[in-house]
């Protein structure tokens, strides 16, 4: 029943796509957390995952870079196809996935190292030793994260000297320094004040040209403000997926309407 409604609510003409989610199921032990998810991630767009607490949006996001592999007892079924390859297949090394799909977390989590080393880490992990190349990529990433001007004179100070908003932008720089295909954002502004939130949102819009963004957000306003596509999830199911305007103004599913109008959630 749900699947039928889902296919009705899909957009008719497809934009260029970087990732396709096919019949994705996910289990925490015996708990069936994601049920038959089918949708796609349009290239160079911001796709927002919204829904009430516990609906599975963060669980879905963490499937994209195989974060669930870090903990025992988790199990995937189905597929997430990137360039025609199923990245959740056990045959694919999760490290390979994470090298192409990076992540920004809910709370800023810089390493207890210098600002420079935080950004450079993604390059060092790959065995890159060329200092001038690292310098150049670090600067590019910090500029891309709109942080360069604030930190260029203190690159070797501890990252913990930065404010919360700056720390989160540093984490974004860390995530984009390796030129990933997709960057995942897990409620990146929930721990920040409104001004810092604003600057992170503007940053995400500017990043679109370089990467595809998938963002989990608690705030419908945030999704409406700057995402291009929106997926609404409820109780582990994908209820509706469409361009953001349609989802917010003309949702085809009553549950989506109720959530957006604030009746559930």
């Amino acid at each position: 029943m749900v699947e039928q409604e889902q296919s009705q609510s899909m957009v008719s003409e497809r934009p260029p796509v970087v990732a396709e989610v096919v019949d994705l199921n996910f289990f925490y032990g015996d708990f069936h957390a994601l049920k038959n998810i089918n949708f796609y991630i349009p290239a160079n767009k911001v796709t927002a995952l919204i829904g009430p607490s516990g609906c599975g949006k963060t669980t879905l996001l963490r499937c994209f870079n195989r974060m669930h592999d870090l903990y025992p007892g988790n199990r995937y079924e189905g597929g997430i196809l990137v360039n025609g390859e199923n990245i959740i297949s056990p045959k694919v090394d999760p490290i390979e996935v994470r090298m192409r799909i990076s992540m920004v977390f809910q709370k800023p989590n810089p390493f207890p190292k210098s600002i420079y080393e935080n950004v450079a880490y993604g390059l060092r992990v790959r065995g890159i030793r060329d200092k001038s190349l690292i310098d150049q990529k670090v600067e590019e990433a910090l500029r891309g994260a709109a942080l360069w001007d604030e930190v260029k004179d203190r690159l070797h100070e501890s990252a913990y000297a930065l404010s919360g908003g700056q720390q989160q932008r540093l984490c974004i720089a860390r995530a984009i320094v390796t030129d990933p295909d997709i960057v995942l954002f897990d409620e990146p502004t929930s721990a920040l004040d409104p001004i810092a939130t604003r600057s992170i949102e503007e940053l995400m819009v500017s990043l679109k040209e370089r990467v595809t963004i998938i963002i989990v957000t608690h705030s419908m306003q945030q999704a409406a403000r700057f995402s291009d596509y929106t997926a609404f999830m409820y109780m582990g199911e994908l209820i509706e997926f469409n361009d953001t305007k349609t989802v917010f103004n003309n949702a085809s599913h009553p549950q989506t309407q109720e959530y957006i109008s604030g009746k559930i959630g």
Partner: peptide, 18 residues
């Protein structure tokens, strides 16, 4: 050590040993 720091490292493609 908080799990968030380890996750951050894994998320940029570090191997377990790294």
């Amino acid at each position: 050590i908080p799990a968030s720091l380890k996750e951050a490292a894994y998320a940029v493609g570090a191997s377990k040993w790294q």
